[in-house]
Amino acid sequence: MASKDRKPLLTIKGLKTYFPVKSGFLGKTKTYVQAVNDINLTIYKGETLGLVGESGCGKTTLGKTILQLYKPTEGEMVYEFADGPKNLEKLDNKEMDEARRKIQIVFQDPQSSLNPSFTIYQSLSDPLKKFGVKTKEERRKIIGDLLEAVNMRREYMDRYPHEFSGGQRQRIGIARALCINPELVICDEAVSALDVSIQAQVLNLLKKLKEERDLTYIFITHDLSVVEYISDRIAVMYLGRIVELADADELYHHTVHPYTQALLSAIPVADIHHKKNRILLEGDVPSPMSPPSGCHFHGRCKQCQEICKKEKPELKKYEINGRDHYIACHFAEENIRKACEKDE
């Protein structure tokens, strides 16, 4: 995709989502889990943005904040509706429904993402009813079409979730997200619970649906090979912040941030002659309740200097061979130089 003529779909500015931790006899709020900590991000129409990071770094919280399942503590999210941009938090009820029609989610766990006591038709019926599909025949037609779109048979709509396999259920979850024709679909670890062959099947389905229905994806995952396959751009998160953001191939070619380097070095390669240069990180991710000062990554970073402990690096824009690359590191320029040396 040409990078200049993209239209932004969702712009996130300074977003913070904190969860209060109550303790003590009177339940006084003492500390906060800083799950999403000052995120600036623009999602363009028609792209697939991969969001990677290890567990507990706030990927899912970010997704659920966009869906308004969690209330953001600070910051704003501006979505481009047909009649102009609006802040997602300041919508009246009618506009809120419009936003719900536009943004949908595919969940991680195929076991719990469908109501076990309802057939597929019954499960999908209420949302459709809410969004204006009044008659039963119409609803059955829409659900049948959707099931065919995700490569399943129409008749399956009268079956119960326990009659399906994991991959099938995940495809039904995708069908549910698509039932009211959204623009932006957040795939929250959508393939992580499936085994590899089914993963490929579902990923290809997602790609196909994206082209057919002109969708935009935010693809949340911890699996780097999956994200490389499906994403146009990739954002790497660490402890509630974005540390590196670039086009997918650019990120894999010129890996700048030390954390991203460590992550990418951990991708298994199916080649016995491949010599591994694994960067092993020491220690664990610090607690998001009391994140370290300065750069969140400084405790585990080999390049750590005094400045890293004191100052928080901002996510700055750099250009590598004419392509945009956002990095939050005090030593970005030095690392860019190193990354480019490898090219030659």
């Binding site: 969940f107 993402s113 469908l114 309802f118 949302p127 969004f131």
Partner: peptide, 26 residues
């Protein structure tokens, strides 16, 4: 906390419908 309930919330269904129609049978 099950994901199907989360999904109904994303659709913005009436809390009473979610609560008594979708959760209660389970």
């Amino acid at each position: 906390e099950e994901e199907y309930v989360q999904s109904l919330k994303v659709f913005g269904l009436n809390p009473f419908v979610i609560c008594y129609k979708h959760i209660l049978p389970n």
